[in-house]
Simulated scan of single mutants.
Amino acid sequence: MKRLLAALDSRSRAVWWHLYCRGHADIAGMSAAAGLDSEMEVLLAIRQALNPAAEAILGEPAVEFAPCRADISTGEKIYNHWWLNPVFLPPVAGEPLVDIFETESELVLIVDPGSRPVYGNPEVTCRNGIVMIRFERSEGR
């Protein structure tokens, strides 16, 4: 992340931090937060600096536009916002990191419990199409 921020100019870095703190924003909000004179400057920062730097350093664009998307933290539908690629979002403190992807024959779930260690073998159940995975924790936690 340090390499990405070092590669950005001040306007692109301001746009980045605004999105990093919120996950998404409308273009007017990014323009105001970054102290830019116009919304076009935000678009130029994303197109000419932020996304090319992220693709060169990390292999993926950092920011994308979506006409409608649900905010994962609130469940609210958000219209016409720019979104930080989930790869770049900060982890929620104390929450495990979870990634789910699908192949031709599998649904793969990867969980990093972070600072909350788990012990033993998982108990996996499936009811009505809902999969539940349970791990035991030590008694002190």
Rank of each mutant, 00 (worst) to 15 (best):
S73M: 12
F101G: 14
T103S: 09
N80Y: 08
L84A: 00
C68E: 14
P67C: 03
A56R: 10
E123Y: 07
P52L: 07
E102S: 08
E106L: 11
G59A: 03
A56D: 13
V87T: 14
R137F: 02
T103Y: 00
P61W: 01
A66T: 12
M30V: 04
F101V: 04
E64S: 09
R11G: 04
L19N: 01
T74K: 04
Q48P: 06
D71A: 09
A70L: 09
A45E: 12
A56H: 11
R47L: 08
R141T: 14
I78Y: 01
R22Y: 10
P113F: 01
L43F: 09
L4H: 02
H18A: 15
L107S: 08
W16E: 00
K77Q: 15
P67Y: 05
L4R: 05
P117A: 05
A49P: 10
D37W: 06
M132V: 13
A49Q: 14
I133A: 04
A6S: 11
P113H: 01
R116C: 11
A53T: 05
A6K: 08
L5M: 05
H24E: 09
A70W: 00
C68K: 13
D71V: 03
A54S: 09
V92L: 14
G23T: 01
R13E: 05
C21R: 15
A70V: 12
E123V: 12
L5P: 05
G59H: 03
C68P: 09
V111M: 08
E123N: 13
V131S: 08
I27R: 06
E139V: 07
L36I: 11
N121M: 13
A53Y: 02
N128F: 10
P52W: 06
E76S: 09
F135Q: 04
W16A: 00
M1C: 07
R127A: 15
L36G: 01
S73T: 13
V124T: 08
G140F: 15
N51D: 06
A34F: 01
M1G: 13
R137A: 09
P67N: 08
P86T: 04
K77T: 14
A70N: 10
L44W: 14
